[in-house]
Amino acid sequence: MSIVGIAFTPADATGIQAFAAALGLPFRLVQITGAANTTCGALKVLSAGLEDVPPADGLVASLEGAVQGASHIVAVSSMASKDVMARLAGVLDCAMVTDVVSADSPSTFKRPIVAGTLIETVEASGAPIVLTFRPAGYERKPPGGACEVESFSISPSKVRVTQAAHKSGGRPDLTQASVVVSGGRPLKDRETFESVIGGLADTLGGAAGATRAAVDSGIAPNELQVGQTGKIVAPDLYIAAGISGSTQHMAGIKDSKCIVAINKDPEAPIFEVADLGLVADLFEAIPAIRNLLGK
């Protein structure tokens, strides 16, 4: 058995290394964007060196050959990987398991369902098995020696990208940040959200996130939504400010190492899951935290 990992971002490579190590299998890497990561422990890296993930149809057509012989074709869970990997499984006519959080065996996996309120154990049959996984539970190892790199070319797509998505601001990626500060509807408007939530995120060198309610009411951009239908995060520190803690939001944060809740309402459900809760007005508490941290 052997793994082919599809790294949609350069940071995915170490997650794939950790997952492969947990299954005890060697892996090859196909890296879609950024400079090739040659020290991630892969047997070999096929590098496309693109700036953005290309449309799924052309990408999957080119992946078909690259994944030959693999028992598992894996990627870190993201919107890009869900778009592409499910199409790949369709083309290969093979089993797929989404959002794996742990592997009981090479063909038995655990994954959250119904917004994380239940855990399903799934058995996949046949080969290969395509899966996306959440890297939170996997220990990353220090880089190994350098491996061979080959260039990887992408087949043409019927889809034309007329405007690429551009990441706003200089903050770390939400799904990879070690600190995430999120805000809910009490943040009122875009400016307030940016200065209060964005400000604390910057103080802590972290990313900013938001609830669905905050995004729906225009307080925060769509790509910051954390939860069942948005981004799943698992930082070392998650600070939820003005967030009551719906099931859908909790589905996106519960693998965080330490959850801090700041909320005026002492009865907010978020306090039931938070490691540390502070009943306070976030507009007073957050500036005070930044003050104490001397920034």
Partner: peptide, 30 residues
Amino acid sequence: PLTRTIKVESPGARPPGRKVANVEELVSEL
């Protein structure tokens, strides 16, 4: 089907946390 549900269970609960009294205690605990 190539995938089959073997088991559905409730996730383990996070260990209960606690409330802190003020911002100072929060920062020092962190």
